[in-house]
Amino acid sequence: MKKVNLLRNIGLIILAVFFAIFFAVPLIWMISTAFKTDMEAMLGGVNIIPETFTFENFRYFFEGANSDSPVFRWMFNSLFSATMGTLIIVSIDAMAAYALARLNIPMKKALFAIIISTLMVPWVITFLPMYMQFSQFNMLNTYGALILPYSANAFGVFLLYQFFSTFPKELEEAARIDGANKWQIFMRVVLPSARPLMATLAIFSFMTIYNDFLWPLVATNTPEMRTITTGIAIMSQGSFVSSYGKLMALTTIATVPIIIVFIIGQKHFIRGITQSGIK
């Protein structure tokens, strides 16, 4: 019986390794190509270790003389808008969700119903009018355009509402008797207990903004205001169309930070995904 189990386990592990190769090889190949000369890359072959190991592709970006691909500016733009957007989303969503779940506000039921019903609305319908809005106010190519449109999403309100409506009333009551006002109760009693969920929402929002493609593509058109995602897209169709060494160095620079954030935040992220699915 034990032997059968062992054989079964070995079989499963081989299968798991096979899939792991499928998911890992493109990334390994990307990093490997980044250290090859353009010449070696174009010649092909299946060698993971470059024959002539070069940092030239990376140096091209670190020297900063390339006005057409200011990759560190792009990374700053992406990180800055994702961070600011996340801060805005987490704070306004938490306050709104708390008000809807616990406070006495006018038209509470109707507001909640309207907000939640927009979860069904696909984003395609808002992106053109939003483009026209930003263009009329001369706000294309600004950080406002890269940050604000994400803050209207109802997902965070929905997520936190579920938590706040099950928060024990006794704790709020106790703080009220101690003389705390609504704001103090919210900040000192309710929010600290919602910390894990807010971390989930934060990572979710950060990834959404950092990885978004079509909106930053239409909302910006100067090299300085591109995000890393749109910048790479432009370069892959422009100057680097046949220079895979540089292109892969560029994607490696862009991928490594997000993978690190991702591995660190994985636990919260996974919880966020599952919570969005169950209820």
Partner: peptide
């Protein structure tokens, strides 16, 4: 799960 954390333009380029 790692590829999910990478943005679409990088996926496409890879």
């Amino acid at each position: 799960f790692i590829p999910y954390s990478i943005s679409v333009s990088i996926i496409a380029v890879i």
